[in-house]
């Protein structure tokens, strides 16, 4: 019966084709370093899941941000775990993204025919950094406030447009409720949307072209 429904669905949806194309494709034998990409993807999923859960209670205003984070951490069952996973996951994601990139560089995987995959990867790295920067402010504790104050003021050091950039980043010349609101907006809408788009292209290319093989050292001429 289950089989029958599955077949009926497959005839119309065609998932077995997708399954075969993605999961049953053959790829070269690779070592454990090649799991770094998947590991990064896993942390991205972790951030998405825990991040969405956090927004159920979090309120991005100076009046409530700190209290709501404290409420999540101390009052809600498993809140400490959700927030902990998100907090530590952020660090893990940065580390894994960089390690993944190092592997790609050292093993020459950015070369033909995977240049475009590499370009999307560089943008993804910037997005991850952006996540870290905007997310740092959200708990609205001392560390968050002053860290972000210094971090954003660094932008102001740029010549000519520095002052202007600073105002754009902070939504004014001071770190304020506006800053918190826009950091939050960027953190939960702009960056995730960009991430999904680029990650989609990145994954599509990885599956289409296939993962690079472990390079053998040619005999030097």
């Amino acid at each position: 019966m289950v089989l029958k429904i599955a077949n009926w669905l497959d005839e119309r949806v065609g998932w077995s084709g997708v399954w075969e194309a993605i999961f049953l494709r053959k790829i070269p034998k690779v070592n454990w370093f090649y799991t770094l990409g998947s590991a990064t993807l896993f942390t991205a999923v972790n951030q998405a899941v825990t991040g969405i859960l956090l927004t159920l209670y979090y309120v991005p205003t100076p009046d409530h941000a700190y209290d709501s984070v404290q409420y999540i951490t101390t009052q809600i069952p498993m809140g400490w775990l959700i927030r902990g996973l998100h907090h530590w996951g952020a660090s893990a994601m940065v580390v894994l993204t960089v390690l993944h990139m190092l592997r790609v560089i050292l093993l020459g995987a950015y070369k033909y025919p995977r240049e475009v995959t590499w370009f999307t990867g560089v943008f993804l790295l910037l997005i991850v950094v952006g996540f870290g920067f905007t997310g740092y402010l959200l708990p609205w504790d001392q560390k968050a406030y002053w860290g972000s104050a210094v971090g954003s003021s660094i932008a102001g050091a740029a010549p000519v447009i520095g002052e202007w950039v600073l105002r754009v980043v902070r939504g004014g010349s001071d770190l304020s409720a506006v800053t918190l609101a826009r950091f939050y907006g960027v953190h939960v809408w702009v960056l995730p949307a960009s991430l999904i788009l680029l990650l989609g292209i990145h994954m599509y290319l990885v599956i289409k072209i296939g993962i690079s093989a472990v390079p053998q050292r040619e005999d030097e001429a």
Partner: peptide, 28 residues
């Protein structure tokens, strides 16, 4: 392999959350 790595990461993160916790300093 990917699944194993993911599980290791998940457990590591949960352990960090449990044993170290997530710092929250004084209100800004």
């Amino acid at each position: 392999k990917d699944a194993v790595i993911s599980l290791v990461i998940f457990l590591a993160l949960a352990a960090l959350a449990y044993f170290i916790g997530t710092p929250l300093e004084e209100r800004a």
